[in-house]
Amino acid sequence: MGFVPSQDADKIADTVEPLAERLSEVLGVDIQAQVLVDYTGLVEG
């Protein structure tokens, strides 16, 4: 799962990690959350 920071990237990374962990538990697959530099990086990733 990729995110583009609209504010402080470190805060977003701390926020999305629990979401990724919970989705992994519910779905039974490994979910990794990444905060990328910009939209282009998200699309390429």
Rank of each mutant, 00 (worst) to 15 (best):
L42N: 11
V26F: 12
D38A: 00
L36G: 05
Y39L: 10
K11C: 03
L19I: 15
F3S: 08
E25G: 01
D38K: 02
V26Y: 11
Q7F: 13
Q7A: 12
R22L: 13
A9M: 02
T15L: 10
I31F: 10
I12Y: 10
D8H: 02
D30E: 15
S24I: 00
L23V: 06
T15H: 14
L36S: 11
P5E: 15
G28Q: 03
E44D: 12
P5H: 08
E21G: 01
E44Y: 09
D30K: 01
G45M: 07
D8L: 03
E21Q: 13
V16H: 05
D14Y: 01
V37D: 13
S24D: 01
S24C: 03
L23Q: 10
G28W: 06
P5S: 12
V35F: 04
L19P: 00
E25L: 02
A33W: 14
V16I: 12
F3W: 15
G2D: 11
L23H: 02
V35L: 07
A33G: 12
A13G: 04
V37F: 13
A13S: 15
V43P: 09
V4Y: 06
S24T: 08
Q7E: 12
D38F: 09
A13F: 09
G28M: 03
G2W: 14
D10M: 06
V37W: 02
G2H: 08
E17Y: 05
V37K: 07
A13K: 14
L27V: 06
E17S: 09
F3T: 10
G28D: 01
S24Y: 00
L42F: 15
L42P: 05
E44W: 01
E21S: 04
E17D: 13
Q32M: 00
S6V: 12
M1P: 15
S6C: 08
F3G: 05
M1D: 15
P5R: 09
T40R: 11
K11A: 13
Q32C: 00
D14Q: 08
E21I: 06
T15I: 14
A20F: 03
E17H: 04
A33C: 03
S24V: 01
I12N: 01
P18N: 00
F3H: 07
S24P: 04
V29N: 05
S6K: 09
G45L: 09
D14W: 09
E44L: 07
G45A: 13
V16M: 10
A13Q: 08
L27F: 07
L36R: 05
I12A: 05
G28A: 07
V43K: 14
V35K: 02
V37H: 07
V29M: 06
D30V: 06
A13L: 11
G2F: 15
Q32S: 10
A20Q: 00
D8F: 06
V37P: 02
A33Y: 08
I31H: 02
I12E: 04
F3V: 14
D38E: 10
E21F: 04
F3D: 08
Y39R: 04
Q7G: 10
T15G: 13
P18L: 08
E17N: 13
G2R: 12
M1F: 15
D14E: 14
L42C: 06
E25D: 10
K11G: 09
G41L: 07
V16S: 07
E25C: 00
L27Q: 07
T40L: 04
G45R: 06
E17W: 02
